[in-house]
């Protein structure tokens, strides 16, 4: 519960239900807040939130967010839809590449060296094969 909801909710609302882009964005924002409050409370309890890192990101992001939110109502729904479409394509493609790369990385058997280190295949050239399990 938390990430990526908007990238799916907004297209469903606009493409499947025919709701305007601006109204769909507003629905997504408003419905995200109660879900996020519950999620953050649970993560807080489990000590999973890094306050220092969060502050580093929130200050510049929040300033930019206010500017973006003030510009959005002035734009047409079509312009916002095109912008969001481009964002989805770039993000979807980039995330797919990262997921496939990670999957391929994980499928390679890891070789553990008896000398104590953990090496991947290309370090093998520098090490005597006998040292590997």
């Amino acid at each position: 519960m938390g990430m990526g909801g908007g990238t799916l909710t907004i297209p469903i609302l606009t493409l499947a239900l025919g709701i305007g882009q601006k109204a769909a964005q507003a629905v997504n924002l408003i419905s995200f807040v109660p879900m996020a409050v519950v999620t953050v409370a649970i993560h807080c309890k489990n000590r999973l939130i890094d306050i220092g890192a969060m502050i580093k990101v929130v200050i510049p992001a929040l300033a930019a967010c206010v500017v973006g939110a003030l510009i959005a109502p002035a734009l047409s729904s079509r312009a916002l839809s095109i912008g969001f479409g481009i964002f989805l394509i770039i993000l979807g493609a980039a995330q797919s590449i990262v997921a496939i790369k990670n999957k391929l990385k994980k499928s390679k058997p890891e070789r553990i060296c008896k000398c104590g280190g953990s090496y991947n295949c290309f370090v093998l050239d520098y090490c005597d094969k006998e040292y590997f399990n």
Partner: peptide, 22 residues
Amino acid sequence: TIAASVAAGCVNGLFGGGGGML
């Protein structure tokens, strides 16, 4: 970090979502 945070904030404000993925 500042540049990427600004981009994420812009996306979230402008499109009403998607900032989390960034």
